[in-house]
Write a protein that binds this DNA or RNA. Structure first.
Lengths: 213, 213
DNA sequence: TCGACCTTCGGCAGAATTGCCGACTGTCAG
DNA sequence: CTGACAGTCGGCAATTCTGCCGAAGGTCGA
């Protein structure tokens, strides 16, 4: 027998169990690929990835809890860190930039086909940046539309920035609502919107991003 | 009758109901003083003080919820803001500096005697900075011991600073404990100590102070 | 006019935080 | 050796936050 060349090791992060197993199947059936892990959340994956040390990670961008963008940020801090291919739906234009900025290597549109997936895996493994043509088009379109490298905080509405100001001073929802003169519920809603826009999941994270860290 | 000269208006912030009423009694019996409010917490006081607009505030330094130091910080942002006399026990050396830095005008040691209290009130009203001799001695002593104007964050132990680092990145207790390799409980304890040293009551507040706002 | 936001408000459940209590070990200075 | 800290760990209760749902009125531009 010939010596088998080292396969590309792959980890999968996808919350939908059906799609996850489907992806795993595609990878497993490829001769020179090996799936070393499949996770339903960013948190689980971040815990296991350092041990598994895969070459490539396939990551859904919409994850419960920590989202894909944040997961990319943390994963690229690993040494060495895997190449990351995001799985996304066509609407997620702004996620694309952030993931790219965070260190992702490529994108695939869902639903993803086996040949495309495997081609993308080999592409990133060879140093490429695979994107489906529709994603690539969206990327250049958006780059044309003056979206170079602006601060996420700037995308917050005036009211949201005002609320974030209070958060940064350490005010609670209740205190903030009293200061501004709106209901607790409204503060709650604004903060939800802030979290979504900044892609964070806690006040401390929002404040850190706001104060420019 | 002669025209009565405008009395010194006084507000009291003291969580112990007995002491609070005792203070109120002392003030009420003074001919040229008038107690316009007495509160059990910083939060209540901060809500009412802008309306009452007292000349002098007597504030306990140990309050439930928001502590006296933070309350001073917020109160001096009012326009115009009252002169503030802190009521403190002899151990609170570090609180003294912070309250002074925050804008308090004077100190009284508990238990406080009527004559001293009224003298202090008139003193601050006249632009003075009343302190009992024992407090004044403590102040100069501590100033001698190289405590000029250092950052509160510097007083945190190395471990505490490390933990605060994770807080600033938005990590939860659980995530932090996993990153460092200690238990959730220990992270919890460290954070409690951090809050006490920084005189804050939430992560966002701690992060804001840490990032220098 | 229609859609896309912004702003406002509410409920509910699960998760996380915070405060306060206790304990034990080790180190280091006085 | 004693006392003061730093660091570790645990439990418990109350509060707060977070996520997800729904709704409604306003503005503004296509």
């Amino acid at each position: 027998m010939a010596v088998k060349q080292t396969p590309i090791t792959i980890a999968i992060i996808e919350d939908d169990a059906g799609l996850r197993e489907s992806l795993r199947g595609i990878v497993q059936r490829a001769p020179d690929c090996r799936c070393v892990g499949a996770f339903g959340s960013a948190e689980e994956a971040l815990q296991a990835i350092p041990e598994l040390n895969p070459t490539v990670v396939l990551m859904d961008i919409n994850l419960p809890g920590m989202d894909g963008v944040e997961c990319v940020r943390r994963m690229v801090e690993l040494e060495p860190h895997p190449q990351i291919i995001m799985l996304t739906v066509h609407e997620d234009t702004d996620f694309i930039f952030e993931s790219l900025a965070a260190g992702a290597s490529g994108y695939l549109l869902k639903p993803v086909r086996a040949v495309e997936l495997l081609a993308a895996v080999k592409n990133v493994h060879a140093g490429g940046a695979p994107m489906t043509s529709s994603i690539a088009r969206k990327v250049v379109q958006s780059f044309k539309q003056a979206k170079p490298s602006q601060n996420e905080v700037d995308e917050l509405s005036p009211r949201e920035q005002e609320i974030l100001d209070y958060l940064a001073k350490g005010y609670s929802y209740k205190e903030t609502s009293e200061q501004i003169g709106i209901s607790y519920s409204t503060v709650h809603t604004h903060i939800e919107h802030i979290y979504h826009k900044l892609h964070v999941r806690s006040r401390a994270q929002a404040v850190a991003k706001y104060l420019g860290v």
